[in-house]
Write a protein that binds this DNA or RNA. Structure first.
Length: 418
DNA sequence: TCTGGGGTCCTAGGACCC
DNA sequence: TCTGGGGTCCTAGGACCC
């Protein structure tokens, strides 16, 4: 069956990125099973993966599987630098580049074929340049849609290229496990397996209504259209963040006012700086409190106006945490606090010229700059309406010592997303 | 001996409005 | 005098991705 369109979308994905960079920087690590991280495996080399080590695994579990494994401290700034260089190489072939994370991107090369040849040749060219100029392996999938290109690059790993001819999409997909589909994780996979669906070919035999019934409307519809190779997503060269957040794992600490105040102060300080830096304000705050045993709850609140003031955000967040704690009186210890800002709006034009992002604002708790007071006061009113007048106090924005995560990693994670 | 940090998207129930 | 339907927004939780 002939399909419309040609395969001009590339998905390029660096192989075992963090681990490969470590091996690039220190030749004695090459060919060795290594992991980046400590308590948790952030990335594992292919040698370590052969023993079953996977990203996200606890450090002790990785050592049990692979006694020879070496844990290396991450050179996070190097990851960022090298990944940026790789993206520059991509950019030499097309400006239609969508960076999905630190180490992968989609490229639309339809307009590049007259300069560089067919997409398969461009893929080879890109791989060659990244290998010779930067020293890293990148796998590339080439297909008619983003979804297919992404599946193809996974099949191409490690260090390979796979081109999916538009006339042979079905036969390419049919034998592959459903887990290769973007968005199908362990839970969905298990649910499908319960109905005897293991491969994408199996999926193609199931009707959309049945899938919707099994997985919910959105997932069901999506899977049905993907297995029919319909994927309307275009390359998006710019994307605006829909939320901004931060979290801090605490080990296990008592759920006291001091711990909450200190941690939230630290988190808001980070997050609101980024918020103002992006010239945005947030209407919705969500806090996450995790207790021992990985039980976690969230509490959120939507304000009448967007807020970007550190002090206001801190006050609201602290109230929300205490609300969560009050709802769970049995929990004596907290292991993580998180803060996320969403419902992001552009800062009103009126405020753009005001020095909202200056450190001054943070250094003067309770004071606001010019007409920014307008937004802040309204929000404070909303809180007082909800929690009473006494709800609002001052927080100290000092975070003492419990932050075990390197600052560079946080910065990296902040930049890693779309 | 249960493990990091940053995100996106979806679902379900309830409040509220017309 | 207590009954319909539709839409939007908010809240809490969860799956998933890198």
């Amino acid at each position: 069956m002939k399909r419309e369109g040609t395969a001009t979308i590339l998905h390029a994905d660096l192989d075992a990125f963090y681990a490969s960079v470590e091996q690039l920087l220190d030749p004695s690590l090459r060919g060795q099973p290594i992991a980046v991280g400590g308590g948790v495996v952030l990335a594992a080399s292919y040698e370590a993966r052969r023993c079953g080590v996977r990203a996200g695994m606890a450090g002790w579990a990785a050592r049990r599987l692979c006694p020879d494994i070496r844990f290396v401290g991450g050179h996070f700034r190097e990851y960022q630098r090298l990944a940026d260089e790789v993206m520059q190489v991509f950019n030499d072939f097309t400006p239609l580049l969508e960076r999905v994370s630190i180490d992968e991107a989609f490229l639309e090369v339809a307009g590049a074929v007259h300069l560089f040849g067919p997409p398969g040749r461009i893929a080879a060219e890109i791989r060659g340049r990244v290998r010779s100029e930067i020293g890293l392996a990148v796998s590339v999938g080439v297909a008619r849609t983003k979804h297919l290109a992404k599946v193809a690059s996974r099949v191409a790993k490690p260090d390979g290229v796979v081109v999916v001819d538009p006339s042979r999409e079905r036969e390419f997909l049919a034998p592959l496990p459903v887990g290769l589909i973007w968005g199908v994780g362990p839970v969905t996979q298990a649910r499908l397996a319960g109905r005897g669906i293991h491969t994408i070919g199996d999926l193609a035999g199931v009707s959309s209504p049945i899938l919707q019934q099994m997985l919910g409307t959105a997932s069901g519809t999506k899977l049905a259209s993907l297995s029919a190779n319909i994927d309307p997503r275009a390359i998006e060269t710019t994307r605006k963040a829909k939320s901004i957040g931060a979290q801090a794992a605490l080990g296990a600490r008592p759920a006291t006012r001091a711990v909450v105040t200190e941690t939230i102060g630290y988190l808001t300080d980070r997050v609101s700086g980024r918020l103002r830096g992006a010239r945005r304000a947030a209407r919705t705050l969500t806090v996450r409190v995790r207790f021992t045993g990985l039980r976690s709850v969230t509490r959120s609140m939507t304000l009448a106006a967007g807020v970007s003031s550190t002090v206001t955000l801190t006050e609201v967040a602290i109230q929300l945490v205490f609300q969560a704690l009050a709802d769970h009186p049995g929990e004596r210890q907290i292991t993580l606090l998180g803060l996320s800002l969403s419902n992001l709006i552009e800062e009103p034009p009126l405020q753009l010229e005001l020095p909202l992002a200056l450190p001054d604002e943070r250094l003067r708790p309770g004071s606001t700059v010019g007409s920014a007071r307008w937004g802040v006061d309204r929000s404070v009113d909303a809180i007082r309406d909800k929690f009473g007048r006494a709800a609002i106090g001052y927080a100290t924005v000092v975070f003492s010592g419990v932050d075990r995560v390197p600052e560079e990693f946080r910065e990296l994670a902040e930049h890693a997303g779309p």
